[in-house]
Amino acid sequence: AITFRFEGQEKAKKFYEKLMRQNLEATIHIHGDEVHVTVH
């Protein structure tokens, strides 16, 4: 698994949606202002 870190939720959401379109499995974790997107 690879984890990407984002400042702010907007960028993270766009990235997450892009992964979903590519049929990749990903989970999102929100830590205050920092958002972690883990790709499995």
Rank of each mutant, 00 (worst) to 15 (best):
F4L: 06
V39H: 03
G8R: 08
Q22I: 08
A26I: 11
K14S: 09
F4C: 12
T38D: 03
G32S: 04
K14M: 10
F6V: 02
N23F: 07
R21T: 09
N23S: 07
I30H: 07
F4S: 02
D33E: 10
K14G: 05
H40D: 04
A12V: 02
H31A: 09
T3D: 03
E25N: 15
E7D: 14
Y16F: 11
V39S: 03
F6Y: 02
T3G: 02
R5Q: 07
G32K: 05
A1H: 13
Q9W: 15
A12L: 03
H40P: 06
H36R: 08
H40Y: 14
F4Y: 14
I30V: 10
V37D: 00
I30T: 08
H40E: 06
A12D: 01
M20K: 12
D33M: 10
V37A: 00
A12F: 04
F6M: 02
A26D: 01
K14I: 12
L24E: 02
A1T: 14
E34H: 11
R21I: 09
R5A: 07
R5H: 10
Q9E: 14
H36G: 02
E17M: 09
G8F: 10
H29L: 09
M20N: 04
E34M: 11
K14T: 08
Q9F: 15
Q9Y: 15
Y16L: 11
Q9L: 15
V39N: 02
H31D: 10
V35Q: 01
F4K: 02
I28D: 00
H36W: 15
K13D: 07
F4D: 02
T3I: 15
H31E: 12
G32Q: 06
K18T: 11
A1D: 12
V35T: 05
I2L: 08
I30Q: 08
E7I: 12
H31V: 15
H40K: 11
T27L: 06
E34G: 06
Q9M: 15
N23H: 11
V39I: 13
E34Q: 09
I2V: 10
L19G: 00
T27E: 09
K11S: 14
F15K: 00
T3V: 15
K13G: 05
R21Q: 13
F6S: 01
L24D: 02
E7R: 13
T38Y: 09
R21D: 08
E34V: 12
G8W: 05
V37M: 03
E25A: 14
R5T: 10
E10V: 06
R5G: 04
L24S: 03
F15S: 00
D33T: 12
N23M: 07
K18L: 14
V37R: 00
N23P: 03
G32R: 05
H36V: 12
K18N: 11
E7G: 08
A12I: 02
V39P: 07
L24K: 07
H40L: 11
H31S: 10
R5D: 03
F15C: 06
Y16E: 01
A26T: 04
K11P: 13
T27M: 05
H31T: 08
Y16M: 08
F6N: 01
K11A: 15
H40G: 07
G8E: 15
Y16T: 02
K18G: 08
I30L: 11
H36Q: 06
I30Y: 12
T38M: 10
H31Y: 12
F4H: 04
V39M: 10
K14W: 10
V37F: 03
H36M: 09
V37I: 10
E17R: 05
L19Y: 02
V35D: 00
D33R: 09
N23C: 02
H29P: 00
E10N: 05
Q9V: 15
I2S: 04
H40V: 10
R5S: 07
I30E: 06
E10L: 07
L19W: 02
K18F: 15
G8Q: 13
R21P: 02
F15I: 02
L19N: 01
H40I: 11
Y16I: 11
E25I: 15
I28A: 02
A1M: 12
R5M: 10
Q22V: 06
G8I: 10
I2F: 09
V39T: 04
E7C: 10
E25Y: 15
A12Q: 01
H36K: 05
Q9T: 12
V37S: 00
G32H: 06
K13W: 15
A26Y: 11
E10W: 06
A26L: 09
F15P: 00
A12W: 05
E17H: 06
T3A: 04
E34N: 05
A26W: 09
K11F: 09
Q22P: 01
V35K: 01
H40A: 08
K11L: 14
E7Q: 13
A12K: 01
E17A: 07
G8T: 15
E7Y: 13
G32I: 05
E7A: 12
H40N: 08
T27K: 04
T38H: 13
E25D: 13
V35I: 11
L19K: 01
E34K: 07
T38G: 02
L24W: 10
E25P: 13
E10I: 07
E17Y: 06
F4N: 02
M20E: 04
K13V: 12
V37E: 00
H29W: 12
H40W: 14
I30W: 12
V37T: 00
I2N: 04
A1L: 12
F4G: 02
E34S: 09
Y16G: 01
I28K: 00
K18W: 15
Y16Q: 03
H31I: 13
F15Y: 04
G32T: 03
I2R: 06
Q22R: 07
V37N: 00
H29E: 14
Q22W: 14
